[in-house]
Design a protein around this nucleic acid. Structure first.
Lengths: 328, 328
DNA sequence: TTGAAAGCGCTAACAC
DNA sequence: GTGTTAGCGCTTTCAA
């Protein structure tokens, strides 16, 4: 079966292909009568414009590339949903690319992305390097970074000020005299943790103290839980801050095992919520990062750069600390 | 900045564009010497072939469309990872489309998918209707359905026999004299639940019994948990089977609230595991559906249909019942 | 072994 | 209002 083309429609409707083109693009110069003729032919033949040919002719594909770290769907899922919802509204397609730390870096995807001639690329990537950024920007393709404040010529970003969030939290605890505060490493989201540490460090400094409890998970431990169930045996904290709710859970489980009662003996807070936090007991106090919005706003910003030729800008989204059962 | 084209390379290398085309496509008729000249020009100019133009000329895009239900990333995440991993190996791009029950049905995506001229489409969709299938198959585009046994001309499927899994499980409990077994509805995965019910019904029938405990969640309850915490107050089961681990969790939480001890008073099993099952207490016994493989095999099957012109086929993947703390 | 030229399906001047 | 035609960047006969 041969795909029906614009020529077929033109012949069927007894008009030129230019007229058909005008009709499918909603040009208003076409006379109502011929427009109907063409529309009928289109329906009769089941014609669907070839986006590839349009892409070639127009030098634009109305599709964007989305790059996310592999195996991150539990927390990027909401971002993707937001992204896709507005992509759908604006009629953009999204091509999905994943990176794997140490195996499949961004640079490996760039080749494919550039060849595919997407109109823009949206990246949720942890600790994007300068090199990677300039590798990309040299193609002058609009970029939006989600989760990290970087902007410039045709590169925008949408993010939450995690440093501030953690600063405020830590400051509050220090004011209450609770000085044993720890932050736990998240191998899957280094840049977020970098911000957390900055916030804590600043809060400590403002109290004339030094923040030292960044818990790196030694390579020999496969999960945070494995590490913590050992570690908590002879360490005690007033508050532990994790990046994702799943890690907070690991902490809580490890605490239970060591007869540390949550939140009485120790409190736990996380930054990123997923829907699991609503199913789990105790529910973890969190910052309720607006993941869906992170995605939807990113795509909005992208289309604005694309269609209204807007400049790159940095957009900060706000968070809301939501106390639950893991804090007093 | 104008993008560099094959013409630019041809001029730079002092050959015809046909020769450049041969080089980038690895043709072996080109003399080593000229091949080097061309390759040098390509590197010097930073030329990247335009996949859109190639797509037009070749009538194939080396990209596929992936359709999944929105907001399903926690359990489709692994499938996507598997899918993308082999897509990357075979150099296929994947365009991501989501459906939303009642708002964005498959049929709404078909238009876009067909226009985008992908080479094939992979669908993880719950209870795909006949109408939707034929709407798609009429374009003669290769399809693979994941999670559902449907096959035909250029349509393949990759699935796990959930009916059998549940049959075996229920049969075992009935043999032990545990007759109060319930299955809980999963609005997000109707077809899986359909299979579960079939399996249970058959097992009951084989024991001369009738399966009746399919717990539908009335519309007024927002979550399974809301429903169950009421429901379990005056209902008791030997075993409750859920589709996803998150639902099993809801059941366990609701049970706790009603002073039903798991697994002593009631046992709980789920079909689909996510990584959260490893963080949660008690861990839920499950069937350990091979989600990653579901994705990777689907993509393999797709490329086989695409590149080796293979026929559609149905591939069954196996499961492994994994007892944990929610069963005796 | 290489080049010339037609064609992939569409858009957008430019004519009429 | 509508048609003609020259691209868009590439692949692939067909000749040379």
């Amino acid at each position: 079966m041969k795909r029906v083309t614009i020529y077929d429609v033109a012949r069927e409707a007894n008009v030129s292909l230019a007229t058909v083109s005008r009709v499918i693009n909603g040009s208003d110069v076409v006379k109502g009568n011929t427009k109907n003729k063409v529309q009928d032919a289109i329906n009769r033949l089941g014609y669907k414009p070839n986006a590839i040919a349009q892409g070639l002719a127009l030098q634009k594909t109305t599709s964007i590339a989305l790059v996310i770290p592999e195996a991150s769907f539990t927390y990027t899922g909401q971002i993707i949903n937001g992204l896709l919802d507005v992509a759908k509204i604006d009629k953009y397609n999204v091509m999905l690319h994943t990176t794997t730390e140490g195996i499949n870096e961004i640079s490996d995807s760039i080749e494919t992305i550039i060849k595919s001639r997407v109109d823009g690329v949206i990246i949720y990537n942890d600790r994007l390097t300068e090199a990677e950024m300039s590798e990309l920007t040299k193609y002058h393709i609009p970029i939006v970074i989600v989760g990290n404040k970087i902007s410039g010529n045709k590169v925008s970003s949408v993010f939450v000020d995690i440093e501030k969030a953690v600063y405020e939290l830590v400051d509050r605890y220090l004011n209450d005299g609770k000085k044993e505060i720890a932050i736990i490493q998240d191998r899957k989201n280094n840049s977020s943790v970098d911000s957390m540490i900055k916030g804590a460090t600043r809060a400590y400094a403002d109290h004339g103290l030094v923040f030292e409890n960044f818990l790196e998970i030694p390579a020999k431990f496969r999960t945070s839980y494995d590490f913590l169930s050992d570690y908590l045996a002879d360490h005690k904290f007033d508050l532990v801050i994790a990046n994702r709710d799943s890690q907070a859970l690991a902490i809580i489980n490890a605490a239970k095992e060591n007869n540390i009662s949550i939140p009485d003996d120790m409190e736990v807070v996380c930054i990123i919520d997923t829907k699991y936090n609503s199913m789990v007991r105790p529910q973890v106090s969190s910052f309720a990062i607006p993941s869906y919005d992170l995605g939807s706003v990113s795509m909005r910003v992208m289309t604005k750069m694309l269609e209204h030729d807007e400049e790159g800008k940095a957009i900060e989204l706000s968070y809301l600390f939501t106390p639950r059962k893991s804090t007093k």
